[in-house]
Nucleic acid binder design. Structure first.
Length: 410
RNA sequence: GGGGGGGUUCCCGAGUGGUCAAAGGGAACAGACUGUAAAUCUGUCGGCAAUAGCCUACGGAGGUUCAAAUCCUCCCCCCCCCA
């Protein structure tokens, strides 16, 4: 398959820009390289957007190098202007601490942080108590405002406005790189292409501070074939935390990707080998669904584990194929008594199953012929689910083609 | 500090006293068509209520008015120019 990191990254489509490809190749061939990526603790979970950098670290580790995940406990208090159009909300210290824990845990699903294998660090450790004056004297003197102003990340914000605190972000990130280089021998920083400017600043700082030659590699900023941001659905982001996005929904997200995205995503988000992926890429027409299933199964398994992935596959088979095993379909419990007499209002059932956000929405959906109970199209808004509809100890609700929920009778 | 321009529903953006739950676009959801895909066409798109209607919403707090997103006062935030 591949015998080095760079070739594989290129083939997989991770390679957007590199500060010195030849130099990096040489370095990676000669020694165990420590490379890092920063993650912002803006929430207590990462989402699909962060999966790309995570995979970057995974591949790095696969080739025997040492990945470092940095959570930006300190920088989160500042807010990165790169690629954002507006001032980011600032977070409280406690919130950031909370978020850090969540992210740390998630990263450890993918990366081995044991012994000398990998590292997980919080930049608050070296930034939080740094005094303003000292920092200016030690670090600030290496930065040229002229150069900072010429960075795209700053330029693009000149119209909307950029606060001074955000303007400092690149200095802090550069400083992170310098510290990692000095204290942990880190020679490589990776990140989304919007980080290019920040990474370059860090490289400069490492040279000036540590007389050390370091490298930067950026990944493409992904959008889906329809131009949407990666990992967005009706309900917002697709999270890695199963409490926020269930493994079932997570699996569904990948099964439903656009045909045109399948190949790219297989390469970027799965660890499947080249041969296997190239086989899947040959699929045409409706068969592409098989490739999507492979994609969904792989990614779900990486993020939520084999067992959850199997359940998601099983649920999908029950709902969309012929399998009779419905045990893994998303469901909730209801006592049998709810269905006696007049039965349970369908509107209510739709709302508290989570299929609909409000009764008004539920009404509209019924009017639009989108709702089915046990496979039967319902056109009566005031429909009640009565006990005679219970089959196999459950009632199957369906909205549209792909949203399903079973009410189990307890 | 002075002058000017702004803050509208998920996003962009119209709206300057009633006809505004608010044009238009995007996103999203649903229907038809399909392959749990795309494209296309159609519909929906604040909450509660069977209808009537009621409530919440146009940066915040007050006020004028029968009636305010629209007028007045104070406050907060953003952008631009000058100092």
């Amino acid at each position: 398959m591949f015998d080095n990191f760079v070739d594989e990254m290129k083939w997989r489509g991770f390679f957007e820009q590199c500060t010195d490809e030849e130099g990096l190749r040489k370095l990676l061939a000669e020694e165990k390289v420590t490379g890092y990526i920063g993650f912002d603790p803006t929430a207590d979970s990462l989402h699909v957007g962060s999966l790309l950098p995570i995979m970057g670290l995974v591949h790095l580790q696969k080739y025997g190098h040492r990945p470092v995940g940095i959570v930006g406990g300190a920088t989160a208090m500042v807010g990165d202007p790169s690629g954002k159009s507006e001032l980011r909300q600032m977070l409280t210290l406690e919130k950031i601490e909370e978020n850090l824990d969540g992210i740390r845990q998630q990263l450890s699903h993918h990366i081995d942080f044991g012994e000398d294998a990998g590292l997980m660090l919080n930049n608050a450790d070296w930034l939080k108590d740094y005094g303003y004056i000292e920092f200016l004297r030690d670090v600030g003197r290496f930065f040229s405002v002229n150069q900072m102003l010429s960075r795209d990340s700053v330029k693009s914000r000149m119209v909307k406005g950029l606060s001074f605190i955000e303007f400092n972000y690149m200095i802090l990130q550069a400083y992170d790189f310098m510290v990692l280089n000095r204290d942990h021998g880190c020679r490589l920083q990776m990140g989304g292409n919007d980080q290019w400017g920040n990474i370059c600043s860090g490289i400069d700082l490492c040279r000036r501070f540590n007389q050390s030659r370091v490298f930067g590699l950026t990944f493409p900023l992904l959008t889906t074939a329809t131009g949407a941001k990666m990992g967005k659905t009706a309900d917002g982001a697709v999270w890695l935390d199963p409490a926020r996005t269930s493994p079932y929904d997570f699996y569904q997200y990948w099964v439903n990707v656009d045909d045109r995205d399948v190949s790219r995503f297989l390469r970027l988000y799965t660890l499947l080998g080249r041969q296997e992926i190239e086989e899947l890429e040959k699929m045409q027409g409706a068969d592409i669904r098989e490739a999507k299933k492979a994609l969904a199964r792989e990614v779900t398994s990486q993020v939520h584990g084999q067992e959850e992935a199997d359940k998601a596959v099983q649920a999908a088979a029950a709902l969309f194929s012929d399998s009779a095993d419905t045990s893994s379909v998303p469901s909730s419990q209801r006592p049998a008594a709810d269905f006696e007499g007049d039965g349970l209002s369908l509107l209510e059932a739709l709302v508290d199953s989570g299929l609909m956000k409000s009764k008004g929405e539920a009404r509209r959906m019924i009017r639009q012929n989108a709702v089915r109970v046990e496979g039967e199209l319902i056109s009566e808004e005031m429909f009640s689910i009565t006990s005679d509809l219970i089959a196999d100890g459950k009632v199957a609700l369906q909205v549209g083609k792909r949203r399903h929920h079973h009410i189990r009778i307890s």
